[in-house]
Each structure stands twice: as structure tokens, then as C-alpha cells.
Nucleic acid binder design. Structure first.
Lengths: 193, 193, 193, 193
DNA sequence: TATGAATGAGATTTCATTCAT
DNA sequence: TATGAATGAAATCTCATTCAT
């Protein structure tokens, strides 16, 4: 089996398991078992459990950010914002396990390497949202004095939490409904009249 | 040292450590060490590591929910929504470690005990937000067909993520600025004109 | 069981086993088994396998050096030299396992902590021999220009190697005979006439 | 690359590493890495880690013993003893890593394979010293009742320990000085007058 | 002749829990 | 009410060896 294939199998297995139980509670034994390889293979490929986690986080974040950028590419600013929100929700639904992992392992403090991971999230995923907001500001669609980083964080967080709650509490609900509520909220269309 | 004092010291120590490393990665040894007591004392007072965590979560959530309810109490619906957002942000700033713990340990699945904890969050904290939204709908301030649970989740999540990013990335920024951006976003005041 | 007792039992067990197989080939499992304690107890008391080894080396060297000093104490320089040689041989016979460990694990290079251990040997055990030689020089019994450190190293090494070969190859030979050959060699009494 | 070259590169790498860390603590991975070949190449050439070690020990000991015999060949007994000591010291200086390996891995017991290696040392290297001593006894230069095996062990050990201490502690000291002290000690020329 | 990904047995280490004091 | 030495199950990690290429 090629090295690449093995690494991907381990990624998939690890994402699922870490999402379910968390990083610390997921054993290398189980990751190897689910990937269908020997335990030593994890260490041959990644060196340590936490190196596997780092690689996996990097892999997932890169894909996530790229998805958001691709969704917005070429659209006018107002449509781009809707597209980014839609795409984030779609990604969460598709990669629910990774989303759980992201929210559970990201907001750490002090723990050395985790700080680094947290910054990666901000820079790459939230950054994609911020870029769209900034383009909307430049196009005159949003207030010129908008606090873009905070707004990007707010949009990203709102969709993330709503997405996870949706999957956890009402998984049978159609995505369109959840999406509509989010877009209404975002566009200020909550008022009664 | 009184029992109450010992328990409180253990609470504080556990919150800090779990916020830093996560529940599974926090050892009873370190909790006891930071609290300045012997390891056996943890077991004498709480019986087990997870019982300590449950007690701590219950304690924190009760306070958090009560703060949100108190903030909204007696206010007209529109002012109540602002007040709840303000209070959530204030609580996050005051109890940053607990907030990190909350976001890190809540969205788990399959873990058995964790499901229970997750529901407690939803029912008690997000419930406080939902109550305010429902009152606004009843008062005709918000659309009658508003998806209240989703909106509550969105509001709670937006503030939570923005609050943690604020503390992590720009701790010196005045709370008023962050608050203003959040309220504008919530009230649909982002449009350029 | 008191902590002191447990540590001593682990020392004894570890010295025997490391002498037989070497440090790296001796498992913590076997050390614990021979000491009659659980494996975790080794870690509770010493923190790591190599910390146990360091403690054990320090313990053994301290005893060894003290035995040599005590043997020479109060004797005139010429008798002191004989006494030190006799005592070194006696110690090797009594603590054969520790002697094997000493010779096997001491002359390492580069490996970080081992350098430190090697210096301890030199400073404390060989130092005891050097002190006796220096006293003999001062008393006019040995050449004033004697290279004391090298001579001390030579005397120590000669007795060490002879002692280990004796135990390994001819364990039934009386110590007196081996001792006599060593003292003759040392005193320059090998010549035919 | 020829087979001979590969084997030599592996010898050199293994000697250095085993001298630094010991046999058990030296991994086949590191040997291959330092030799600049793939791990499988070690197995292709030697079949196993211990076979590599055996071959290396045999190679080194053969050379060592031969050097001692060559140095003594054709000399009168008294000059031969000096020559053997000088040559041993020279060999240690040239092949310091091998000497460390020798002293570290020789005095084991119970290890099964090691017993064999230990006997090889005794028979071949110390045997060369013993032969010279026996010739001196036969020539009437040394006491007829000299315990030749013990004396050979003593001479070999003295030079070995002094040589390693010299390289480890005072590598810049000229060999002639160390040599002179050893020969004086051996010839009983330590007395003050 | 050489490679290096994969293995799995066995090593070191961790840590929640117990219990005698 | 509190302690901390001891435990042992279960975790992480190592590494000699194999084998398809």
C-alpha cells in the first residue's frame, strides 16, 4: 500500500474517532484498528499521536478554507457572503466529525502547540470569511467602519454553533431551513415588519 | 480548612486546567497539586474525577444561566435581547476559563455522560436566550415565524465565539467595541446606508 | 510499606538485573517483579527508568567510595595503599553485580547524562585511591614526580578488571591469592630475583 | 557501492553508536542512517542485529590481538612486555570507540550470547599479553611462581582503564606521558628512592 | 544488491482509583 | 476530614524483523 493511501486512511479514522471522544480520549490502538493497519504504522507515518493530530488539523483546515474561498470566487460581494455561509453549513454537514474536532480542540490556552493551531484556524478559515466581508465593505454594501475581524468571527461562530446544534439535536431537519434562518439573521431580516 | 473551601479550591483548579488541556488530558494529580491538597482529598470530596467535572459543570452553568436571566428580567423585549448579549459577553470575560471549558467539552457525541452535559448547556444557557427571543416574538418585535431555537443557538454561538476570539487575540480591546459590533450585527445594522 | 523500604528493594532488584543484562536490556517489569511491587510503584518512586538508574548509580558509588576511604583511614601511607586495594577487591566480591554495572555503563561518550555519571566515578571512587597515593607521595614513600591521577586510574582499573575476571572465570579461587598477585604487582615485586 | 564497502560503512557506524549508547540501546535504524543506507540493507548484509555485532566484535578483536602479537614478535621478553603495553595504548587511542564498546559489552553474565563474546576477549586479547608474560617467566625475568593469567588480566585492565580515562578526561595529553607512567608502574619503579 | 513501508510483540509510561493511616 | 504510597489496567511508543518491489 502506498504511503499516501495509508496516511489518508489514518486521517479518516482519526477524524471520526477524535470527533466522537476528543483527542485525549481517542487511543492510537483504535485509530489503527479503524484504519485497518497495525499500531506501529501510525508511528511509522506520523511519529507520534500529537503529530498525527497536527497533520490532520492542517489537512482539514486547508480543505475547509479552500471550500469557502472557492464558493465565493467570482461572485459579487453580496452573493459571496450568502455563498460563504451556505458553504460553511454544507461543509459542517459533510464533515460533521471534523467540525466537532475543530470546536473541541481549538480554543485552548497556554498549551504550547495548541496556540499555534488556534491561530491557523483564525488565519485560514475565518480569514476566508473576512475577505468576503472586506470586499463587501469596499463595494459599499456594508458600513465603511465595520469591524471586519470581529464580524468575520461572529459569522463564522454563528454558523459553526448552529450547524453543530442542528446535527446534534435535529439532524432530520432540511438544511434549507437552517440556512434560511441563518441568512435572515445575517441580513437583518428578523424584524416583524 | 472547611469543606466548602476545599471544594472551591478544587473547582477553581479544575476549571483552569480543563480549560487549558481539556477534561481527558487533565489529571487528578495536577488538579490536587494546583488546589494545594493531596490527591486523596479529591476522592474524599467528589468520589471520582468525572463527578468533580459534573459538579463543576453544573455549578458553572447554573451561574451562567442565572446571570443571563437576571440581566433580562423586567426589561422590555428589545432591551432584553441587548442585555442578554451584553451579559453573555461580560460573563465570558469574567470566567474565560470556564467558557473555554464549555466550548471544548460540549459538542461531543457518543460519549454517554457527555450527551447529558451537552443537553444541560442547551436547556439552561441557550434556553435563557430562547426565552428572550420568544418574548420578542410574542411582543410583535420579531417575525412570528421565527425559528426561535435556531436563532437562540445562533445568537449564543456568535457571542461565544466572538468572546473567546476577543480574549485570545485582542484581550486589550475594550469590551464596549466588541459589544457594539455584536449588537449591530444582531440588529441588522450592517448595511451601508 | 515505607517509601524508604520500597526504594531499597527496587535498588537491590535493579542492580542485580542491570548487572546481568545491562541497563537497556533490563525491563521495568522485571525490576518490579523481582522487588515484589507493582510496576507503577517504580514510577511513583523514581519517575522514570533512567532516574532509577541514576539514583542507583549514585547510591552505589557513594557506598563504594566510602568503603575505600574508611579502609584507608588512620593507616600510614604504605599500609593504606594495600588496604585500599584489598578493600576494592572485597567490595567487588561482595557487590559483583554493581561492579559489572559500573564497568558496563560508565565509559560512555557523548550520551548526555552518562558523561555526568562517568565523572562521578572518577571524582569519588578513583579519587579515594588518588588521595592515598598523594599521601604516600607526601610521606616520601613514592616518587615526588608521580603522575597521581594516572596512577590512581591504573590501580583502580587493574583491581577492577582482575576482580571481574576472577569472579567470572575462577570464582572458587580464594581471594587471598588474587590479592597477593595484585599487591605484588603493585609493589614491583615481580622480578625473578 | 560494493558489498565490502557497504559492510565497512555499517561496521564503522555500528562501532561508533554502540560505543556511545551500548548495544541494546543502539537501533538498527540509526546504524543504517549513519551508514547512509536503508534499513533493509543491514539485514541483507548481516541477517540480524546481533550477527552484525558478532561480526564486528570478531573483526575488531582479531585486529587488536594481532596488533599486540605483532608488536611483541621477535623482541626479547623484557622489551616485549613494554611493547605490548605501548601497542595496547596506541590501539586504544586509534580505535577509541571500539575500546569503549569492548569494556562496556564484555563483562556480562547470563546473557547467553555475551558469554561467548567475553571468552573471545579473554582468549585472544588477554591471551596475547599472557603469552608475553609467560615468555618472560620462562626466560627467568619474572618470578617462576607468577600467576600469569591474573597478571595478564591486571596488565590488560590497567592499560584499558588508563587509556579510556586518558581519552575521556585529558585527550590533549601526549601519549608518551601516559605510557611512561604505565611502564614505571609495571616495572615497580614507583618507590621514592 | 538494495530498499523502505509495514508489522506486532513488547517496552516505557500514565493515571484514576484504593486504602491504611 | 485529609493524606499519599501503592496499584494495575490501559495508554503511548519503540524497534528488530519481514517482504514486495
Amino acid at each position: 500500500m502506498s504511503r499516501g493511501t495509508t496516511r489518508e486512511r489514518l486521517f479518516t479514522a482519526a477524524i471520526d474517532l477524535i470527533a466522537e471522544r476528543g483527542f485525549a480520549a481517542t487511543t492510537v490502538d483504535r485509530i489503527a484498528e479503524r484504519a485497518g493497519v497495525a499500531k506501529g504504522t501510525v508511528y511509522y507515518n506520523f511519529g507520534s499521536k500529537s503529530a498525527l493530530f497536527d497533520a490532520l488539523l492542517d489537512f482539514g483546515i486547508t480543505r475547509f478554507a479552500q471550500r469557502l474561498r472557492d464558493a465565493a470566487a467570482g461572485l459579487p460581494p453580496d452573493a459571496a457572503l450568502d455563498a460563504v455561509v451556505r458553504e460553511e453549513l454544507a461543509f459542517l454537514a459533510e464533515h460533521e466529525a471534523f467540525a466537532r474536532l475543530l470546536i473541541a480542540e481549538t480554543w485552548r490556552q497556554g498549551g504550547g502547540d495548541w496556540q499555534h493551531a488556534a491561530l491557523m484556524i483564525r488565519e485560514r478559515v475565518v480569514g476566508a470569511v473576512a475577505d468576503v466581508l472586506r470586499a463587501a465593505v469596499d463595494a459599499g454594501l456594508l458600513r465603511a467602519d465595520l469591524d471586519v475581524p470581529t464580524a468575520a468571527s461572529a459569522v463564522f461562530g454563528m454558523v459553526l454553533v448552529v450547524g453543530l446544534d442542528w446535527r446534534a439535536l435535529q439532524p432530520d431537519r432540511p438544511r434549507a431551513e437552517v440556512e434560511a434562518t441563518l441568512l435572515d439573521l445575517l441580513r437583518g431580516r428578523l424584524a416583524a415588519v
